[in-house]
């Protein structure tokens, strides 16, 4: 195995009495999309900001390409592209001015025009930042993170506030960026986004890593049962419910039968991994032909639930890092 391009070990960061990051460790391989997933306030942003050398850790080590970014944050600025949560540009700067400005900071910048084209911003090149839509601002923000031709790009909550269409477009874009060889560290509180984009991820809760792996590994690793939802024609619903109740009584693979909230015709059947094998013969025996049968897909939300014992509420505890905390800059450190 090659040396990980990013390595975080036992990272700890507190703001006064508040522990933002308790103990976080993970390693990112070159070329992958690595996710940091968790509810707001879990410590995701603090983790990547410390990783980028913007905040001083209270414990642990963070290395980017083998460089300790706590000791020498300037050493990785050229290879680390960062997209912060909030937009951070003048209202009156145009898209192309911003991109050209940032290009000037790097030794080996990308071609601003190519990036504009890649991010579908070419038609808006002369538009001022304040006049851009949320999606356009977000795409510009990604462009600015990529303008230095980074080896690693940190993208923090890049689809927050976007409509579903813009979100999908942004996801495709992230995949295109990865295809150019950039390692991506994706911070998100959207389970769906992590599941769709990440090769591997850590789930963080209350400053600790609660799970790590590929989305599929995490989901497949879940203990416990499956749920199958059966939909009957209206005239069959009553009989279907009776038959399924009988099935639940006599078959150990079937653990529960319950109507689905908000639906008169759907019934959820829960049980072991083999519940479907019991369900289908029982329906056949009763000659109940369902209009629809679907297995409920398990997701990272179930993984979160399994590891924390809580349902995933991404917006809960929306504390985040205090904004008045002094960030480290070269000037402030000297």
């Amino acid at each position: 195995m090659a040396e990980p391009i990013v390595e975080v070990r036992n990272l700890r960061k507190t703001y006064g009495p508040k522990v933002a990051v308790d103990d976080v460790s993970f390693a990112v391989e070159r070329g992958e999309i690595f996710g940091i997933l968790g509810p707001n306030g879990a410590g995701k942003t603090t983790t990547v900001e410390t990783l980028a050398g913007l905040r001083q850790a209270d414990g642990g080590t963070v290395r980017v390409r083998g460089v300790d970014t706590q000791r020498d944050p300037a050493a990785v600025r050229d290879v680390l592209g960062v997209q912060l949560q909030e937009a951070a540009l003048h209202d009156k700067i145009t898209v192309s001015e911003a991109l050209n400005l940032f290009a000037g900071f790097y030794a080996d910048p990308a071609d601003p025009d190519e990036l504009l084209a890649m991010l579908d911003l070419t038609p808006h090149a002369d538009r001022r930042f304040a006049k851009l839509s949320g999606g356009q601002k977000q795409r510009l923000s990604i462009a600015l993170a990529l303008i230095g031709n980074p080896e690693i790009a940190i993208l923090d909550e890049l689809t927050t506030g976007l409509d579903p269409q813009a979100r999908r477009t942004t996801w495709e874009l992230v995949e295109r960026v990865r295809a150019t060889g950039v390692t991506i560290l994706l911070v998100t509180h959207f389970m769906e986004e992590a599941e769709r984009l990440c090769d591997r991820l850590v789930i963080i809760d209350a400053g600790n890593v609660v799970a790590e792996g590929t989305p599929q590994e995490l989901i497949d690793g879940l203990e416990g049962g499956r749920t199958v939802v059966v939909r009957f024609a209206p005239q069959d619903v009553e009989r279907g419910r009776r038959e399924l109740a009988v099935l639940a009584d006599r078959d150990a693979e079937v653990e529960g039968v319950a109507p689905v909230d908000g639906s008169d015709t759907e019934i959820a059947v829960t049980g072991t991994r083999r519940v479907l094998f019991s369900l289908v013969p029982a329906l056949a025996a009763a000659d109940l032909v369902p209009d629809d049968v679907r297995t409920v897909t398990r997701s990272l939300e179930d993984v979160f639930l399994a590891h924390t014992g809580r349902a995933y509420l991404p917006g809960a505890d929306d504390a985040g890092a205090p904004t008045d905390t002094t960030l480290i800059t070269e000037g402030a450190r000297s």
Partner: peptide
């Protein structure tokens, strides 16, 4: 301060 340019 995330870029090589000093914020100063």
């Amino acid at each position: 301060s995330t870029t090589p340019m000093r914020p100063q």
